[in-house]
Amino acid sequence: MIKLVPPKPFFYKGGEKAVLLLHSFTSNTMDMKKLGKYLHKENYSCYAPLYSGHGLTPEELLTYSPSDWWQDVLNGYQLLKDEGFKKIAVIGLSLGGIFALKVGQELDVNGVVTMSVPNHREASFLQKRVSFYAKRYKQLEGKTEEKIDLEMKLLQNMPISSLVEFQQLIDVTMDHVSLITSPICILYGELDEPLYKESAETIFRSVTTNQKTIKGYPNSKHLMTLGNDINDINKDILLFLNNLTW
C-alpha cells in the first residue's frame, strides 16, 4: 500500500503587498499554487494555509470541523501580520471563498476575491463530496476494490456533525455579506452548477462596498484556479489587486 505524502502550506515571500490564499473543501493548497506563483512574480507575498485534516485520510478529515478550519485561516492571517504586513488581501475558492467572505466581514482586509462560492449546501451534498474524495484517496493508496468498498461502508456510518456545521457556516456567512465594505471581486465558472452564478450575483447585490466587480468565465468549472481560463483569471485578479490602495 502506498503512503501518500500530505500537502503543506506555502509561503512565497515577495514585496510588501500580502495575499492570503484559501483553498477549497476536501482539496489542498495545490488549488492555489499556480495563482500564488503568478502573484509572487508580480511582487506579492502569498501565504496559503492548509486546513486541518485536508490532504489526510477521509476518516481523519471528518474528525475536524469548520471551526478548526476557520482557526487555520485566522492563524494564516496572523502569520502575515506577524511578518510585518500592514495590509492584506484575501482570495478564496469554494469553501475558501466562504472563508474569504468571513474574513471580509470580521477582519481588516484590503480587498476580497471569491471564486465558486456556494450560497447554500446541504450536509448530504457535502457528505457526497467526502465520499468522492474518500474513494479517490483509497484508490491512490493502492487498496483493493474489496477493501475500499468495506471502508466506504464504515465511512458512511461516521458522524457528519462537521458537515452540518459546514452547512450552517455557509448560511450564516451569506446572511452577513452586507457587512463587507472592502473592495471585492466575485468570479464564477460558467460551466459550474448554475447555483454558483446565482450565488455570485447575490454577493454582488448584497455587499455594501461600491468597489465591486463580477465576472463569469466561459471555459471554467468549479476549480477555477486549475481550469482552462487560468491565464485570464490570474490577470483579472492581478488587475484587481493592483487597483487596491496599498
Rank of each mutant, 00 (worst) to 15 (best):
I2K: 15
P7W: 03
K8A: 10
P9E: 02
F10N: 03
F11L: 06
G15C: 02
E16A: 14
V19N: 05
L20R: 02
L22E: 00
S24I: 01
M30C: 08
M32R: 06
K34P: 10
K34A: 08
L35I: 07
K37E: 08
H40Q: 08
H40K: 07
H40A: 06
K41G: 11
S45C: 09
S45G: 13
A48Y: 07
A48R: 04
P49D: 01
P49H: 05
L50F: 12
G53D: 04
G55H: 03
P58E: 01
L62Q: 02
L62W: 08
T63W: 10
D68A: 06
W69I: 01
W69V: 03
W70G: 05
L74E: 14
N75V: 13
G76P: 13
Y77H: 02
D82S: 15
K87Q: 12
G92W: 04
G92A: 05
L93V: 11
S94M: 10
I98E: 04
A100V: 14
L101V: 00
E106D: 12
V109S: 09
N110I: 06
G111W: 05
M115V: 07
S116Q: 05
P118I: 07
N119S: 11
R121N: 03
A123L: 04
A123T: 07
K128L: 04
K128M: 04
V130C: 03
V130R: 03
Y137L: 06
L140V: 10
E141G: 01
K143L: 15
T144W: 08
E145T: 13
I148S: 09
L150E: 15
M152T: 09
K153W: 11
Q156V: 04
Q156N: 06
N157E: 15
P159Q: 00
S162F: 04
F166S: 00
V172L: 07
T173E: 01
D175M: 13
L179N: 10
I180R: 03
C185D: 07
I186K: 00
G189D: 05
E190Q: 05
E190R: 12
E190M: 09
L191M: 14
D192K: 11
L195T: 02
K197R: 08
A200W: 00
A200G: 10
T202W: 11
I203V: 15
R205H: 12
T209L: 04
T213Y: 12
G216V: 12
L223I: 15
L223R: 11
M224A: 02
G227F: 13
D229M: 08
D229C: 11
I230R: 07
I233K: 08
I233H: 09
K235T: 06
D236E: 07
L239N: 13
F240I: 12
T245V: 14
